[in-house]
Amino acid sequence: MTTLTSRTASPGNRPLWLIDVPVVLVAVVWGSSYLAAKELATGTTVIALLLLRFVVATPVMAVVAGRGITRLSGREVAAGAVLGILLSGVLVLETFGVVHTSATNAGLLISLTMIFTPLAEGVATRTRPTGAFIGAAALSVTGVALLTQGSGFTAPSSGDLLMLLAAVARTVHVMAMSRMKAVRSTDSGALTVVQFATAVLVFALASPFAAVSPVDAAAAYSPQQWAALLHLALMCTLFAFFVQMWAVRRTSPSRVSLLLGTEPLWAAVIGVAVGGDRPGPLGAIGAALVLIGTTWGRQAMAPPAAAEDRPAAASQPTGAV
């Protein structure tokens, strides 16, 4: 089998860069999601925002999934609902976290999922991580400690802690998705519809207890805020899902995952350039360490070339707020 490093063109003689560019664009879009969510959400409107986002995204996803939905078994629907509940928890933690920290911190802290997931998988399979991976994890944790200090040593903000919890919750979601036997051969589009629909139900049930209703939040949005909401629903969710599935079928899960792993870099760039984030000297060093550590960790845990054809956990649209 041809290895990743020797590929210069995809099947059908399509240059790989024509496939890589849309995947990198997904990483950029995901990196922008933290700033978009920060522009929209307040401590009282998180549930309303999430409900509106999934009310927009779910019908479109259902149309695209088409007949695949009708072929789901009861067991697959139940498993998808469990995943949808986990996804809802991830998004609540992430969005509340974004409200209380910077977009740069949010994007970098959530990238620790790339470290937590292999560690969790190692525990589940009783496989000891390599020394290189342990070194990468230590570097990432050191980076997080510096990143959360900004320009001086202080207690991490509540938003930073929520983003760390969100990274743990996302790890649980990914692990559940990869280990649930009921969904291993399930149509990805149909499974995503079940997760989205479950999220709509969860947020709808929670909205009466929120300070601001979805109707009031929607009525108060400016045209610019509606554009940000559509960006989250259509670009960060639907567009990202389709590009991932399209690219995985034309290159390999490993290549797609590596490119999507640039998300925290784009989150930092957009947070600083557009959002005006100023992480300070310690924060800048910490950000660099997180990026180096997560990149090193992905490479240390990279599967051999023979594993390229295995399904990637990144094929589900859960990579951003």
Rank of each mutant, 00 (worst) to 15 (best):
T2H: 12
L4I: 12
S6T: 15
S6L: 03
T8W: 08
A9M: 09
G12I: 00
G12D: 11
N13G: 14
R14W: 11
L16R: 11
W17L: 12
W17Q: 04
D20I: 00
V26T: 04
V26E: 01
V28G: 15
V29I: 13
V29N: 05
G31C: 04
G31H: 09
S32Q: 12
Y34G: 10
L40T: 00
G43M: 05
G43C: 12
T45F: 13
A48Y: 05
L50A: 00
V55H: 08
T58G: 13
P59N: 03
P59H: 06
R67L: 11
G68Q: 04
G68K: 02
I69N: 06
I69W: 10
R71E: 13
S73Y: 10
R75E: 12
V77L: 14
G80S: 12
G84Y: 05
I85N: 08
L87Y: 15
L87E: 15
V90H: 13
L93Y: 06
V98E: 03
V99L: 07
S102I: 03
N105T: 02
A106N: 10
A106D: 06
I110C: 07
T113A: 07
P118S: 05
P118I: 01
L119G: 02
T125W: 04
P129N: 02
G131V: 01
A132T: 04
F133L: 00
F133P: 07
A137E: 04
L139T: 04
S140L: 06
T142Y: 15
G143N: 03
G143V: 00
V144I: 04
A145Q: 10
P156V: 00
L164S: 06
A169D: 10
R170E: 12
H173M: 08
V174A: 09
M177P: 14
V183E: 02
S185L: 08
S185Q: 15
S188P: 12
L191V: 01
F196G: 00
V212T: 14
S213H: 09
A217L: 08
A233Y: 11
L234F: 10
L234N: 07
M235Y: 14
M235N: 13
L238F: 03
M245F: 09
M245H: 11
V248W: 12
R250T: 00
P253G: 14
P253A: 15
P264N: 07
V272C: 06
G275R: 02
G280F: 01
L282M: 15
G283W: 14
I285M: 13
I285F: 07
I285Y: 11
G286S: 04
A287R: 11
A287G: 15
A288E: 02
L289I: 04
L289A: 09
L289K: 04
L289D: 01
V290F: 09
I292M: 14
G293L: 03
T294Q: 08
T295C: 10
G297F: 05
P303F: 07
P304I: 06
P304E: 12
A305F: 05
P311T: 01
A314H: 14
S315Q: 11
A320N: 04
